[in-house]
Amino acid sequence: MKKSIFLGTLAAAGLVAGFATAGTLDDVQANGVLKCGVSTGLVGFAAPDANGVWEGFDVSFCRSVAAAVLGDSDAVEFVPTTGKTRFTALASGEIDMLARNTTWTFSRDVDLKFTFIGVNYYDGQGFMVRKDLGVASATELDGATVCIQTGTTTELNLADYFRANGMSYEPVPIETNAEAQQQYLSGACDVYTTDASGLAATRATFEDADEHMLLPEIISKEPLGPLVRHGDDEWADVVRWTLNALVSAEELGVTSANLAEMSAGTDNPEINRLLGTEGSLGDMLGLDADWAARAIAVAGNYGEVFEANIGEGTAIGLSRGLNAQWAQGGLIYSPPFR
């Protein structure tokens, strides 16, 4: 009896004590696999396809990091996390990085001890309703029953928005996207709220997508980005500059089509530094010279990844909007490779 209790507690403590003390970069290279936390299934961002292969906007970024660090875009173990389990998984070392539509907020950065390495999608919380509800604006939602995906900033924004506008509502908190959809589609909720990109992705999977619409109000700022544990700056730099490499590649005109040609050397010194034919940026990161070229080779630059997974050509149909390059009036901007 005592023995089984002892072993049980030992196992429980093992989980708590499980995080590694060596650098994450060394751990990943030693293991030969990158453990990347993604969502449990959000079409366009992270979902397994018919053959069980993970694909999507966030998944593609995990593969780019794996390609940069390990030289193999398939050396990724995708760990599906819910809104509730994701931070525990990252803090405990179960995953090396998290790319799961996670909003960069003060308390998550400072109090939860994570390092957000940048923003790969500028989003905001929106509302989806049935067209026959006859509502044209979120200010007409007084008294509505609202389905919320729990474990996000969503329920706090929602509470603030309804309180600020003096409206009442009935919250129906749901753990996963699938169950929230069931409640919304059966009419148990008037409104479904989460990040606008998530709503667009969810709506794209409905049989009667045309019967539903997003309300024009965006009630919050939701800068979504990948994050790593606090306190391991070498690893944070690797992930941060992988994202910057994808963004810079789009800005500099490096695409999956011309990557091989440009890797041979160009007249533009910044492209040369990015792709490793000039300077020693890879060395500084603790990687080899063509790390960035491998990251870009996975699925192309930031713009190509966007268009292939969530862009206007896909069922999700998101326009670039805020997520255009800064030169095109968007907010996507990378510091220089120098």
Binding site: K84, S107, D111, T150, G151, V172, P173, I174, E179
Partner: peptide
């Protein structure tokens, strides 16, 4: 089923918001 019992409040939203 979206019923807010103590696991849903203390062990759910509160845990997630405060970490």
């Amino acid at each position: 089923v979206g019923y807010m019992d103590v696991t849903g409040t203390l062990g759910g939203i509160t845990m997630n918001q405060t970490g």
